[in-house]
């Protein structure tokens, strides 16, 4: 394990129109981590995500990736980002899986640069890692929600990032596919040693999947191993009320 954390946030604060949405947020992500960021809607998750990615600059505190400060508009090659809309059915672009995944390689190329053999190999390796190489010539809008999600992950991996960040990846994916998807993410983390940050509001499922959890409601409510807390304790921290979980075949949401 490297002594310099892959990502380090120190005392990060952020205000929107005079209202503080993040306060004193500090945490570290080490190589090989699988971190789940949990929080109800409006808890500051999206703002935190944008700050980590360098889209927003923190108004207080600092963000460092591999020891270097992350600046808005700077070099974000550390991150492979899978946006929330990746699995949505309204993605109706006439692109093949290969074209989509190749576009993830574009940030690595100089302006006016052409793809070289090494780039094509990286694209193929990314598709192979997520298991969609045989789908490379299919149109992305012809794929199922789960397959489409994998295509977007392959695009993120094509840039050879240090950290894969997924924002609410299971929106629009059915329950059976969700379980397979979490197995797939665990393999990416454990077999391929890819560091993952997963942002979600889904306490029930996420708590069982990730190695460490960060609970957010404008400030850190909990940051530590996912095995140290029960789901009930997590929900109590996030929503401030005691709840009981009842198994339900169709819906995993708390």
């Amino acid at each position: 394990m490297s002594s310099v954390p892959l990502l380090e946030l120190q005392n990060v604060g952020f205000w929107y129109n005079g209202r503080q949405v993040l306060k004193g947020v500090s945490f570290q992500v080490q190589e090989g981590d699988y971190l789940g960021i949990l929080g109800p809607n409006g808890s500051g998750k999206t703002t935190l995500l944008k700050i980590m990615l360098g889209i927003l600059s923190p108004q207080e505190g600092s963000v460092r990736a591999r020891g270097k400060e992350v600046l808005a508009g700077g070099d974000f090659s550390v991150f492979g980002y899978v946006p929330q809309h990746a699995s949505h059915a309204e993605f109706r672009f006439p692109v093949t899986v290969r074209e989509l995944v190749s576009s993830g390689r574009v940030p690595q190329l100089p302006l006016f640069g052409r793809f070289k053999d090494a780039d094509r190999k990286m694209v193929e390796q990314s598709m192979r890692t997520v298991g969609i190489l045989e789908l490379q010539n299919r149109r992305v809008d012809d794929l199922s929600g789960g397959e489409r999600q994998k295509a977007f992950i392959a695009r993120a991996l094509a840039g050879n990032p240090k950290i894969l960040i997924l924002d609410e990846p299971l929106t629009g994916v059915d329950t059976a596919s969700q379980e397979l998807f979490y197995d797939f993410l665990r393999d990416l983390n454990e077999v391929f040693r890819i560091t993952i940050i997963l942002v979600s509001h889904d306490v029930d499922v996420l708590a069982q999947q990730v190695k460490s959890i960060l609970c957010l409601r404008h400030e850190l409510l909990y940051y530590g191993s996912s095995s140290d807390l029960t789901k009930e304790e997590l929900v109590e921290k996030l929503y401030g009320s005691k709840v009981k979980f009842f198994p339900h075949k169709e819906n995993h949401h708390a």
Binding site: F76, S77, Y81, P83, F93, V95, L100, S103, L109
Partner: peptide, 23 residues
């Protein structure tokens, strides 16, 4: 023709393009 892949990249997904630090 010269910027085809860059234009495809920014048109497909502006959020991803912004995060990837490309101009």
């Amino acid at each position: 023709f010269l910027l085809y892949k860059e234009f495809l990249f920014v048109s497909l997904d502006q959020e991803f393009a912004q995060v990837s630090g490309r101009k």
